[in-house]
Design a binder for these strands. Structure first.
Lengths: 204, 204
DNA sequence: TATTATACTGTATATATATTCAGTATTTTA
DNA sequence: TAAAATACTGAATATATATACAGTATAATA
């Protein structure tokens, strides 16, 4: 794709500012007024160029039908689901498990994440993870020793430290003296790593 | 203000969804199409009701000139300073103590808050507060027993449980067996309550 | 009980708006 | 060097759109 020109950038900025100010996109005439053009066709041609270069979409026939693409960079925010640590049964991200959502910048934690997991129990209390805390979970199966992982054993979902003992043996280690390590022989038992913790959120 | 009706809520939702989908607000005709109305005036009257109740603004004469008010949830974001728990000396919110800022919705925690405090040490580890955790602090001196407070004793700033023993005696209680309670006789020593914890944020 | 708000259909219309066409001029690409 | 892209003015127009007006009917206030 060709580079954006400085005039096209001005037009794009103008659209962005206009939407932020009013809540809806400008007309061709609005753009002319803002940037000092004297013909609506000046705006039109710039818009068509921006459309061609994939910076915006224009809905044909619709008034103010301009939409800025790649809003990812601009509002880097999203709704993240909060999921209860369901003891048994349902798969983690099923609709019915979503308690609510939290609006949160995408780059809030140092790594991207996919959902919040609401913690049940105190098995990780020495790691500062308390009941009802919300763990920011990144869905991945690439975990290394010491990571706090969200693991599924049959139908049980649990949060523990990950420790690989050998090629066949993995230990899931709690952070609470009242709990036992869970030793998994990968040749006998199935271990599914849902993801790992990349952050934590607590509301008092 | 009167309550919103279920039909008005449907229209409001419709506008929200339309904007999210297309990037620009709907026309009266669009709303009719979405909700099954047969006359554009159906949409018009609902819009005027929503405007009167302050849920939206309508720019007169402009096409698609609808803007949803109370973007409080969406736009109510701010930069919150992150402050190191400076052992001695400087007042808490001084410029030079601000390590960085975090962009975060105003209503992120259940209560409003003023800044993030970066925790040093493990004196509150049994309360799930670990080194380098960020405590969301609400500046207030109204605290009650059991609150986690940010307290200043002379030049020392500390995070502890608050416990009032009598009119003159306050105890600051750590959550770690290796630490001692701090007993303060208000007639002899000066205790300044900077604020209390309303939440916690951790980045792994 | 009178009034206002809600919840619509249906028609009409001024105007707001996208969009095309005709030019001019400069710069960039093939 | 010809073609395409950029960067405009200016005028014209079909149509998209807001909005007023005329009704009907029911529920909620005062």
């Amino acid at each position: 794709m060709r580079e954006i020109t400085s005039q096209q950038q001005r037009v794009l900025d103008c659209i962005q500012v206009y939407i932020k100010k009013t809540g809806f996109p400008p007309t061709r005439a609005d753009i002319c007024r803002e940037l000092g053009f004297k013909s609506p066709n000046s705006a039109e041609t710039h818009l068509r160029a921006l459309e061609k270069k994939d910076f915006i979409t224009i809905e044909s026939g619709a008034s103010r039908g301009i939409s800025i693409k790649n809003k990812a960079d601009i509002h880097n925010r999203d709704e993240y689901p909060v999921i209860g640590l369901v003891a048994a049964g349902s798969p983690t991200l099923a609709e019915e498990n979503i308690e609510r959502t939290i609006n949160c910048p995408k780059s809030f934690f140092d790594s991207n994440f996919d959902y919040f997991l609401k913690v049940k129990g105190l098995s990780m209390k020495n790691a500062g993870i308390m009941e009802d805390d919300l763990i920011a979970v990144k869905k991945t199966s690439e975990v290394k020793n010491g990571d706090i992982v969200i693991a599924r054993l049959q139908d049980e979902v649990t949060v523990k430290f990950f420790k690989r003992k050998s090629s066949k043996i993995v230990e899931l280690e709690p952070a609470n003296e009242d709990f036992q390590n869970i030793v998994i022989n990968l040749e006998q038992d199935e271990l599914h790593i849902e993801g790992k913790s990349v952050g934590l959120l607590r509301k008092n």
